[in-house]
Design a protein around this nucleic acid. Structure first.
Lengths: 117, 117
DNA sequence: CCATTAATTCAACAATAGTAGAAATATGGA
DNA sequence: TCCATATTTCTACTATTGTTGAATTAATGG
């Protein structure tokens, strides 16, 4: 299942760090070497980890000169979260309601900014 | 980190199945034996898996007669989702916005039911 | 075409996780 | 107390995962 693959990809310390870094880096992404330098991971180890993220579709990559640029795949991430949420929400507002609040409260979400209760 | 622990707990096929079953079962939970029967897992294997979920705080357990009843911990689950979401939303509506929509759209979320666009 | 830089693949190893048989613990009832 | 039921713990084994050194592939510039 694709959810398992993505969960496993994120369920590892350095890989979650890498992913967070990529998310922070934005759509332009970051070169593999730079990621390695920033996080202090050896290039070959990082390569394996990036491969796991890419296989889970959580990261994309493109060559740019000698570098290979990795970028977070936002769609895959929101897809995973939506899956988990809808999976867990089956009749259980306990999970969903706080999440909905957090989602709309989140700074990045520019919808219905007027309504605050 | 607690997020890693919870992600790993869910990042395994039968364990995710167990968790989904518990979520579906509701706050009353389910006896370990019944879970094993429903999912076709041997009791000792299931016990190990339930232990992982409990260690990640995703499931609680209480004894009831001879049975031990496991129940999903909704708070922990929504906590994980909120962590992932806020972690990923740092300036990136691409992830957060669809999630906010899904969260409010979700059947279980009883807030602002009047607004449909 | 050679040297340099960037990243990956390969191979080997150590550590961790998943599974299952057998034994142990806990509860409830005759 | 003894037995049956419910679950866990212990132990061993297999499979998977993470890491690293060494070799390999790819791109650029002289």
């Amino acid at each position: 299942m694709t959810a398992i693959k993505r969960l496993s990809a994120l369920a590892q310390e350095s890989r979650l760090e890498v992913f967070r870094l990529l998310v922070k880096a934005g759509p332009n992404g970051m070169a593999a070497g730079e990621i390695a330098r920033v996080l202090g991971i050896t290039p070959n180890t990082l390569s394996a980890q990036l491969n796991v993220l890419a296989n889970a579709d959580l990261a994309t990559n493109r060559r740019e000169g000698r570098s290979i640029i990795y970028a977070a795949n936002y769609d895959a991430m929101s897809g995973l979260l939506i899956y988990l949420m809808e999976d867990c929400c089956q009749g259980h507002p306990e999970v969903c309601a706080p999440l909905a609040q957090a989602a709309t409260r989140a700074a990045c979400c520019d919808q219905t900014e007027g309504a605050l209760s």
